[in-house]
Nucleic acid binder design. Structure first.
Length: 645
RNA sequence: GCCGGCGUAGCUCAAUGGUAGAGCACCUGUUUUGUAAACAGGCGGUUGCGGGUUCGAAUCCCAUCGCCGGCUCCA
């Protein structure tokens, strides 16, 4: 345990000490340190309120001031049971005790009147706790299993010094300013309207520009790499997804199917009342849910999310993935080995029924557009194609200056049943992914159980401003769907062969990627992505006319520009443009109008002085064409965005 | 979905049982401005929605929708 972890672990014991003083009935579960602090889980009828947090924190300060020593006590299993019982903590602690392997030592740590089953280690004295703060209350299932009771978790953080704690809290506040949900509102990039629906992104004009530019960028790269563009509809028949295996494997996280009018009419013609229709649907659904749960070994499918079955009804589903559609395009004509690889690309919009509590701004939504593509190749081509996909991801991320990501190789869960197909093929595919990931030059982790049900994958994972990880790009090898759809090509031997599929999406989804991108740039987008690239600011309306001619020239050159024609003073116009995070402000006065020049103020450097307009135009055009990254901001005191703007 | 917190004007927030307010944004007028906020006036809310308690509800209670933080989940 590092010294910081030790400090935080001790803080969690002191938290429990304080909670028991204030609420003696609380039952304790566990309280470990985390990357950013610590928590402790309690079971208590009384629901903690924010006011309780204040009381508990005050009590923790007292405990710290009491300068309690931490003692380690090694005991036999029998003694451990006795201690736990004597404290009335058998509800969870006996279970935790049972987790400790027979050959391991059992230890308790005691500070003052508090004693807890604990492997350690701890600080020597509670007075070491000089800088801590309780942050939030949350529900957390015992042992992380939603079938268990939900406990109350108190989160806090602790640092060796008050300055470090203050710095961390400031950093948290700073991060909130870069939150894509806040910037999305301030910069008018997207909205979510509750009448349209939770988790459904409405791209407003500014956000749409960013998305469009990204799509143009990726499309150009795809053309270079020999991809073919396709378009497919947003729905497909239930049968299609039964063939692919998405339905019912993932039925719980799909929108309910759209029932065909004819099927609906048939049922109604039988004279069923509405309640009877629902009863029939429920009966079939229950049966189906039971089947699926038996197969997966989990009770994850609930009847109400499993509505019409095809034995009863025909229907269409909002597509949860694009692959079945692309597969049908591939299968629509015979293929020779000479044609392969076939690479079909589409910005395909898919819909998934995410749990309401999991929705989050643009990063977790119910409808999203993947920059999707499916590659159909021979087994020999797999390794090279995976590498090609990875290089594409690298191009995308490096063009955007995103280097702070990690790579995860998702392998099948050896004990799980949530994978389909031949284990031998999985081994080959997993080896191919591992080899490909190794060539990236980025550290990667192998994570069993993180595979898709049809094959292993390589994911790119990035953290958001508050430290939550999101999966972006992904490359997945698939030996299963070609079998399910009986895909073939004719080899050089004139025999029919099975192609291998690769699924890949370098951005993941446009929604999530843009959300992460907003936070990555803090709203200061590179010029090629900025919704507004140039703001013309005439000093007085006497030069508005000059501004108008420049605006026309900028627009003719394809530069997104506008003119601030308000009758405000210069400072106010500059302030407005800065808050809108426009990369270039061109100040225009009488001098500039006479000499066909502009006074350039860049977002990065501030006032750059006067230069000929023609020269500036070339400069900004080239910056756009090369997709230049923003220069690092010269640090000045930037006033925080005020209320009301 | 679960636990907890929160929903007041376009935005950020006041008003703790007694006439819903401020700043900014927006509109109008004055001002014609040299690198982050000129001045004055005006417009704007059935306090998320629906019930209830009360002489009286933004405020208290119930229900519902949504948002936030976690947990669970994430093809």
């Amino acid at each position: 345990m590092t010294p910081l972890e030790e400090l935080r672990h001790s803080a969690s014991h002191i938290l429990a000490t304080a909670v028991l003083r204030v609420f003696p009935d609380a039952k304790l579960d566990i309280g470990p340190p985390t990357d950013t602090g610590f928590y402790y889980d309690f079971d208590l009828d009384h629901k903690f309120t924010p006011d309780d947090l204040v009381r508990i924190e005050a009590e923790m300060k007292k405990v710290a001031d009491e300068n309690q020593a931490f003692f380690r006590k090694e005991v036999s299993r029998e003694e451990a049971v006795e201690i736990i019982k004597s404290r009335g903590q058998e509800r969870y602690k006996l279970g935790r005790l049972a987790d400790i392997p027979a050959d391991e030592k059992i230890s308790f740590y005691q500070n003052g009147e508090f004693i807890d089953l604990c492997a350690g280690t701890h600080v020597r004295y509670s007075s070491k706790l000089k800088a801590f703060k309780l942050l939030s209350i949350a529900g957390a299932y015992h042992r992380g299993d939603e079938k268990n009771k939900q406990l109350q978790r108190i989160y806090g953080t602790a640092f060796p010094t008050k300055d470090e704690l203050a710095a961390y809290l400031t950093q948290l506040d700073q991060a909130k300013l870069r939150d894509h949900r806040k910037l999305g509102k301030d910069l008018k990039l997207f909205v979510i309207d509750e009448d349209v629906g939770q988790g459904l992104i409405l791209w407003t004009p500014n956000g749409a520009i960013i998305r469009q530019e990204l799509q143009n960028f990726i499309s150009a790269e795809l053309r270079k790499q020999g991809y073919s563009q396709v378009f497919t509809p947003h729905i497909g028949k239930l049968e299609l997804y039964k063939t692919s295996g998405h339905f019912p494997y993932y039925k719980e996280s799909q929108f309910s199917p759209v029932i065909e009018n004819e099927s609906l009419a048939k049922i109604l013609a039988e004279g069923c009342s509405c309640t009877e229709v629902y009863a029939r649907l429920d009966a079939v659904s229950a049966q189906l849910a039971a089947q699926v749960n038996a197969r997966t070994g989990k009770e994850t499918i609930t009847v109400d999310r499993v509505r019409p079955d095809d034995q009863l009804l025909d229907g269409f589903m909002l597509k949860p993935m694009n692959c079945p559609h692309h597969i049908k395009i591939f299968a629509s004509q015979p293929h020779s080995y000479r044609d392969l690889p076939v690479r079909l690309a589409e910005f395909g919009t898919v819909y998934r029924w995410e749990q309401s509590g999991e929705l989050n701004g643009m990063t977790r939504v119910r409808g999203f557009t993947q920059d999707d593509a499916h590659l159909f190749c021979t087994e020999e081509q797999v390794a090279a194609e995976v590498l090609g996909c990875l290089s594409l991801v690298k191009i995308v991320l490096s063009t955007l200056g995103m280097s702070d990501y990690r790579v995860r190789v998702g392998l099948r869960d050896p004990d799980g049943k949530k994978f389909a197909g031949d284990p031998a093929k999985w081994d080959v595919a997993e080896a191919a992914c591992r080899t490909a990931a190794a060539t990236l030059g980025v550290p990667f982790t192998e994570e069993p159980g993180e595979a898709a049900f049809y094959g292993p994958k390589i994911d790119f994972v990035i953290k958001d401003m508050i430290g939550r990880e999101w999966q972006l790009g992904t490359v997945q090898v698939d030996y299963v769907l070609p079998v399910r759809f009986d895909l073939t090509y004719i080899g050089a031997d004139n025999q029919s062969h099975r192609p291998v599929m690769i699924h890949r999406a370098p951005f993941g989804s446009m929604e999530r990627f843009c959300g992460v991108l907003i936070e990555h740039f803090g709203g200061d987008f590179p010029v090629w992505l900025a919704p507004e690239q140039v703001r013309l600011v005439p000093i007085s309306d006497k030069v508005n006319e000059y501004g108008t001619t420049l605006l026309a020239q900028l627009k003719a050159a394809g530069v997104r520009a506008s003119l601030d024609g308000h009758s405000d003073k210069l400072g106010a116009k500059i302030r407005r443009a800065e808050l809108d995070k426009v990369p270039y402000i061109l100040v225009l006065g009488a001098k500039e109008a006479e000499t066909q020049s502009v006074s350039v103020r860049s977002r990065a450097k501030g006032d750059e002085g006067v230069q000929p307009f023609a020269a500036y135009l070339e400069r900004v055009k080239s910056e756009i064409a090369t997709r230049a990254l923003p220069e690092k901001k010269v640090t000045t005191t930037v006033p925080s965005r005020p209320q009301g703007t």
